[in-house]
């Protein structure tokens, strides 16, 4: 009997594929698929979450605001303007909106589950005119009117679940990061569309109340001085860039041929003084807490 070890040709147990080509195909394919899946989930969830009655949303445990830090009773001026803005929307009867004031330096305002709108002192301080304040409130009311808070919460839950399934299958943390980023960018695109919608509604409301949409441009200027567009890419943002929002507001104004020569009511000095006193008060309580 003879024993020998002949040479076996290469390449039987390995595939001859170009790794770079495979990388491109897989990456493009997976990103495209995730984009499609997330868009589809958003679409499906939107149709379901829309059916959730507003009362149910209001009774959700996370819709309670009494425990949030710094929530203070709404000053009469804010209550008055809020009412004015809310009245300009034709909200369904059961949709009840509650505006809150928070004594904090954050330059922000947001709408959340249960019809709550939160205004921070930091943002209010920067305003000069009443219509700018109305613009903020109107923007947030529009979010609630279109049920954006509940829709966003539902998207987060459903897409998070889907991603965790996919993540378990890939078993690679880098690939999971890629999946997360792709779905985030898709959600951001959706979020920017919502912001456009809210801006549009808010401008309509301003026109209804003041006969002018100057407040929108004023507000975007304020935001721009606080959060500059410089170095920002709209693709990676939940909100459209300020310059685009301003441009859109300008276009809306031109389109509806509004006369801009309306006299704008400034924020009452009494209210500004009250905000200032609040700021000092907040500083002092902070100091006490640190001591």
């Amino acid at each position: 009997m003879e024993y020998s070890n002949p040479e076996i040709p290469e390449g039987i147990n390995t595939s001859k594929t170009n790794p770079l080509k495979e990388l491109v195909i897989l990456t493009v394919g997976v990103i495209g698929a995730i984009f499609a899946i997330v868009s589809l989930l958003i679409f499906v969830v939107d149709n379901f979450a829309d059916q959730i009655p507003f009362e149910v949303e209001q009774n959700l445990p996370m819709s309670s605001f009494t425990e949030m830090q710094g929530v203070e009773p709404l000053p009469p001026y804010l209550a008055k303007i809020s009412q004015k803005v809310i009245n300009s929307f034709n909200l369904p009867e059961q949709m009840h909106i509650t505006v809150h004031y928070v004594n904090d330096d954050v330059v922000n305002a947001f709408a959340t589950l249960g019809g709550h709108i939160v205004l921070y002192r930091g943002l209010l301080e920067k305003l000069k005119y009443e219509d700018e304040l109305s613009m903020i409130i109107a923007h947030e009311v529009s979010h609630i009117k279109h049920r954006h808070p509940i829709l966003n919460a539902s998207h987060g839950a459903v897409i998070g679940l889907a991603l965790s399934f996919l993540g378990a299958s890939s078993g690679n943390s880098v690939v999971n990061d890629l999946l997360g980023t792709t779905s985030m960018v898709t959600l951001m695109k959706y979020s920017r569309e919502n912001e456009h919608l809210a801006d549009k509604d808010a401008i309509d409301s301003l026109v209804k109340i003041y006969g002018s949409a100057e407040g929108a441009i004023g507000l975007f200027d304020v935001l721009n001085s606080e959060y500059s567009d410089r170095g920002e890419v709209e693709f990676f943002n939940t909100h459209p860039l300020n310059k685009n929002r301003t441009a859109e507001a300008r276009e809306a104004i031109n389109h509806s041929r509004i006369i801009n020569s309306v006299v704008r009511a400034p924020i009452p000095s009494e209210f500004s003084r009250w905000l200032k006193a609040n700021k000092i008060e907040a500083k002092e309580t902070k100091k006490v807490r640190i001591d």
Binding site: Y3, S4, N13, S169
Partner: peptide
């Protein structure tokens, strides 16, 4: 057997798509 030619081997690594993984889960 007239001649031994040593070891021959074959291997294959494969994966199933996520849908299958999900169903298996």
């Amino acid at each position: 057997i007239t001649k031994h030619l040593g070891l021959v081997q074959g291997s294959s690594v494969r994966a199933k798509h996520v849908g299958r993984d999900l169903m298996a889960g």
